[in-house]
Amino acid sequence: MSTREVFTDRLQAGVLLLPTMVVSLVFLYYPTVRAVGLSLYRASLARGDVFVGLENYRRLASSSEYLRSVLISVLFAACVVVGVMAVALCVSFLIHEIDVGKGVYLVAVIWPYALPPAVAGLVFLFIAHPNIGIFTSYIEAFGVDVNWFSNGPQAFVVVLIAAVWKQVGYNVIFMTAALGNVPESLTETAELDGVSRTRRLLRVYVPIISPTLVFLVIMNTIYGFFGTFAMVDLMTKGGPAGATNILIYDLYRTAFQFYEFGFASAKSVVLFVAVGLLMYGQFRLSDRYAYYGG
């Protein structure tokens, strides 16, 4: 009997799998199939659906607005992944290195992660609001004109900072755990060999915790594409002038503000396929570079 075969009774296995199967079918697979179907229609609420074939996809391919949204999303997700991981790695390393007050620092860093995205978005909005923000006047004292309701690049940066701030905690949890698992002997050897702190982090720790980092790259990518919706919605509504109009927000707007469900479905299918391909690529890369022992 192989180790995998815990249940000899197919019926029993089936019953145990049923809840998961039902939830997946009803809330994941069925909507996916519906979305693919709907993307071939011109569908809007209470006005009847008209079959239009690939028209919605054609419209997407020829829309410069959509293309811009794609570029912004990719850039945004890339900045989120790099920003979050760079900050989280530094913070985790510092927490790993100090002896006193580890717990306090950990709690402080993880705190923003505990906020629901909508709350985080609102909090950040009122921290950085151009007119009534808490920190705005201090930042303006440095000669920066806080004007991200009108200035696109500024808005992009503000939403990016909010997104990074929110996600760092999640990364720190995993990174400190991974750093805690690095054998003490390695650290001692490195110290005896006179390896500097930064080199120890980058050359010794990072390769050893690479499986965790790969996992985080993937989670942060998903977060960058999908999880930052609430912040965009609450802070910039995709603006100004589309500067923060990431795909997931664009999709929401098409569906739930413009009621163009067919077109929105086409957008969601494209987003699904694109992020799926990206994941696949990341897994392939990680197989090559991550260190899984042995």
């Binding site: 309701f149 009108s150 200035n151 603006g239 100004p240 002038a241 589309g242 503000q257 413009f258 009621y259």
Partner: peptide, 21 residues
């Protein structure tokens, strides 16, 4: 009919216009 679309278009474009983009 497409009031929300036209509304959003005008509002978004207004930002580009008044900010001088």
């Amino acid at each position: 009919g497409p009031a929300r679309q036209v509304q959003t278009t005008i509002q978004d474009m207004s930002v580009e216009l008044f900010s001088g983009d």
